[in-house]
Design a protein around this nucleic acid. Sequence first.
DNA 1: CCAACGGCATAAGCACATGTTATAGCGCTG
DNA 2: CAGCGCTATAACATGTGCTTATGCCGTTGG
Lengths: 317, 317
Amino acid sequence: MPLAHPVPDLVSLDLLQSVAELGSIRRAAMAHHVSQPAASMRLRALERTLGLELLDRSSGRARLTPAGTATVEWGGAVLDEVRALQLGVAALRAEGSTQLRLAASMTAAEYLVPGWLNRLRAAEPDLGVSLQMGNSEHVADVVARRDADIGFVEGDTVPATLDSKVVSRDDLVLVVAPSHPWSGRRGALSAAEVAATPLVLREPGSGTRQVLEGALGACGLSVTPLVELGSTTAIKAAVGSGLGPGVLSRLAIRAEVREGRMVIVPTSGFSLERAIRAVWPKAVVLSPAASLLLAQISRRADGSVADPEGPTRSSRR
Amino acid sequence: MPLAHPVPDLVSLDLLQSVAELGSIRRAAMAHHVSQPAASMRLRALERTLGLELLDRSSGRARLTPAGTATVEWGGAVLDEVRALQLGVAALRAEGSTQLRLAASMTAAEYLVPGWLNRLRAAEPDLGVSLQMGNSEHVADVVARRDADIGFVEGDTVPATLDSKVVSRDDLVLVVAPSHPWSGRRGALSAAEVAATPLVLREPGSGTRQVLEGALGACGLSVTPLVELGSTTAIKAAVGSGLGPGVLSRLAIRAEVREGRMVIVPTSGFSLERAIRAVWPKAVVLSPAASLLLAQISRRADGSVADPEGPTRSSRR
DNA sequence: CCAACGGCATAAGCACATGTTATAGCGCTG
DNA sequence: CAGCGCTATAACATGTGCTTATGCCGTTGG
């Protein structure tokens, strides 16, 4: 569903951020290479679209109001995601002649790589990165041919010519809208119940559909499609609008679940978990940039970063 | 520091989202109440600014390219944060006559409330919400006067006239830039080492400064300011640029740490942790909306939502 | 107490981005 | 092969946003 109006402007949010950092509209304007009146008008326009007084100009120097500091923080979260998008896009666009060449499966590329690049950029701001996307076989192939320095694939089968290391995990989960009766359900669903329920699914032949069919098939069951859609986003929309339960990668619904727009229904009796692995050619030293990236990704596992998002605790797998 | 160019446009990202959901540019245009050519041109402009081919129009119907699906997902994360901002702003702007009146301390309002509202809106889309911000005493006062249905405060001291429940936790942490020598440090810093180090701090008298001084004071030590800045954002900028170690609320640096732009340096020997509590008048039944919100916040603690962000595990407190 | 300075707002002019309607081309489908 | 649905292009109107120039105000230092 489309964004509600009015939509704030990214450039203005970014400008407000600079005002907060630098303490004056003038300096913020300089940092953004625009004239001071332009910055002033932009900020006034932002205040108008949000309907809030963000800045107190009464004392010569512009100071943030309480609403302004809140907006700075909320806007900061938006801008962080924009930066991740920009890094991902830049990596996708990069043609050869860069220093770190990545290859990643769709899931890893979409949900994990931008965050990794964000962290990598903190340590090596000027490192050029390129990213190639494809299915797991394609990634393994690209890495084996030395067309990428390091790759990221889903699944536990790795060609014998490649070294690998598990860097993350992903699994398919059953999700429903918060209004769905199952959203308050206590016990886990059995494989038979899942098979008997019409589900919002990807089309036959897609990776996630195959994994689901395989897991149910191992129990002698098969899936019952309610509708079949061609994209993860379409499934999110259908499930979110209450059409029915859907099956999606846990990574794909991270934000929706965190913010309560979807609810994961626990299941039992079958597992749809797969590892996400870094892969690189065996008997070849990793390039310095690739080994730095791998080290950064692995260091995250040391538990030093607590999840500050409310009292949520990660389930231990 | 300002956003890098080129900056994608939120409306275009939102439009692309609709194309992914609805399967055609035409329908996306209708969903956004603009003409089809306008949508077509917007998407072309987005492709130009990102330097990527997002849509394959060769087959009559527009279909997403691999780069397009990646952009849809990255853009979805951006739009999720925008929605949180909009909810927070709407709640700040709301004047009386709404159905749920919140009051929250700055930290809770900035970092937690928008996410809660996002979840609440999934269950009650038409609920009006207002939000009042202030320090903890002010929040307790507003709630006691029945000017808010429920409040959120930091700290463990709650007036006797109020009921309370811990809904989250926050603590101050020592952070450095990834380039700082301490970022790779193994052991924890002692209170004496922290006291001996010049730090980037808030000004004397601010809440976070007082907490830090209190904790060190209990060990017979005092802080050594390197610079004193007037806002959390200014401290983030100073620490991020490598000026020196800083002390900030863990909630405030969530995104920075997750993406590796800052590193938390472990400390030991003193604690800067405080609970974040919901508070409401004792001997008064919570309004239905308030109790729903409280239930949703509390339900998050049941562990059903695993953190899918890489192999990170939450530390258990 | 006054002068100088830094910072913000307003005004006028201009370029360009973005929207609209009308129309043509193209790929499916029956 | 004809019709339909989808998209691109064209031509035009309009408003947004930037720039430079200038005035006002609050702060600061002698």
